[in-house]
Computed example of a mutant assay.
Amino acid sequence: MSKKRVLTGVTTTGIPHLGNYVGAIRPAVRAAQADGTESFLFLADYHGIIKCHDPEMIHTSTQAVAATWLACGLDPERTTFYRQSDIPEIMELNWILGCITAKGLMNRAHAYKAAVQENLDKGQEDQDHGIEMGLYSYPILMSADILMFKANEVPVGRDQIQHVEMARDIAGRFNHRFKEVFTLPEVKIDENIELLVGLDGRKMSKSYGNTIPLFETEKKLQKSVNKIITNLKEPGEPKGTDESPLFEIYKAFATADETAAFAQALSDGLAWGEAKKLLSAKINAELSDKRERYNELTANPAQIEDILQAGAAKARKEARVLLDEVRDAVGIRALR
Score class of each variant (00 low, 15 high):
Ile100His: 08
Ala151Glu: 06
Ile193Val: 14
Thr60Asn: 13
Thr101Gln: 04
Phe182His: 09
Ala260Val: 02
Ile25Gln: 01
Lys277Cys: 05
Thr298Asp: 02
Val197Met: 01
Ala315Cys: 07
Ile161Arg: 10
Pro16Tyr: 06
Glu325Ala: 14
Ala252Phe: 02
Ala67Met: 11
Tyr138Phe: 11
Leu199Asn: 03
Glu237Lys: 07
Leu214Phe: 01
Asp75Trp: 11
Ala31Gly: 01
Pro185Asp: 08
Tyr136His: 06
Val321Ala: 12
Pro185Thr: 05
Met91Ala: 14
Tyr82Ser: 03
Tyr138Cys: 04
Glu89Tyr: 13
Arg168Leu: 07
Glu92Pro: 12
Leu196Thr: 05
Ala302Asp: 15
Gln309Tyr: 11
Ile170Val: 14
Leu74Val: 15
Pro185Tyr: 08
Ile229Leu: 13
His129Trp: 11
Gly201Trp: 06
Gly48Ala: 15
His17Tyr: 09
Leu147Ile: 07
Arg108Ile: 07
Gln264Asn: 10
Ser143Phe: 06
Asp324Ala: 11
Ile96Phe: 11
Asp35Ala: 15
Ser244Tyr: 06
Ala312Ile: 12
Pro235Phe: 00
Ile87Glu: 10
Asp306Gly: 01
Ile193Gly: 09
Ile140Phe: 08
Thr183Val: 15
Ile50Val: 15
Glu258Asp: 06
Asn300Cys: 04
Leu308Arg: 06
Pro213Arg: 04
Lys122Phe: 04
Glu153Tyr: 13
Ala114Lys: 14
Tyr112Arg: 08
Ala313Trp: 00
Pro27Arg: 00
Asp242Ala: 11
Thr230Tyr: 08
Asn295Ile: 00
Thr11Leu: 05
Glu132Val: 03
Pro88Cys: 08
Ile307Phe: 12
Gln303Asn: 09
Lys282Ala: 01
Lys277Trp: 01
Asp45Trp: 08
Glu180His: 04
Glu191Leu: 02
Ala115Thr: 01
Glu218His: 07
Thr13Met: 05
Ala319Val: 12
Gly73Val: 11
Ile90Pro: 12
Lys282Cys: 05
Val156Asn: 09
Asn295Arg: 10
Glu234Ala: 14
Trp95Ile: 15
Tyr112Ala: 03
Tyr250Asn: 02
Ala265Tyr: 02
Leu214Lys: 03
Arg177Lys: 15
Gln33Ser: 13
Pro16Ser: 04
Ser85Arg: 13
Glu77Gly: 14
Val164Arg: 11
Lys317Ile: 05
Glu125Met: 12
Leu70Cys: 10
Asp54Glu: 05
Leu147Phe: 07
Leu335Ser: 09
Trp272Ser: 02
Ala260Arg: 12
Glu248Asp: 13
Met57Asp: 07
Asn107Val: 01
Leu335Tyr: 03
Met142Leu: 10
Ser137Arg: 06
Ala254Ser: 12
Asn210Thr: 13
Leu308Asn: 09
Glu248Ala: 13
Thr68Ala: 12
Glu165Pro: 02
Ile25Asp: 04
Ser39Phe: 15
Leu74Asp: 11
Asp289Leu: 10
Met166Arg: 01
Cys99His: 08
Asp268Thr: 00
Phe81Pro: 03
Arg336Gly: 09
Glu191Gln: 08
His59Glu: 12
Thr241Ile: 14
Asp190Ala: 07
Asn192Trp: 00
Lys150Cys: 08
Glu38Lys: 14
Tyr138Arg: 04
Tyr82Pro: 06
Pro301His: 10
Leu18Trp: 11
Leu141His: 05
Tyr82Thr: 02
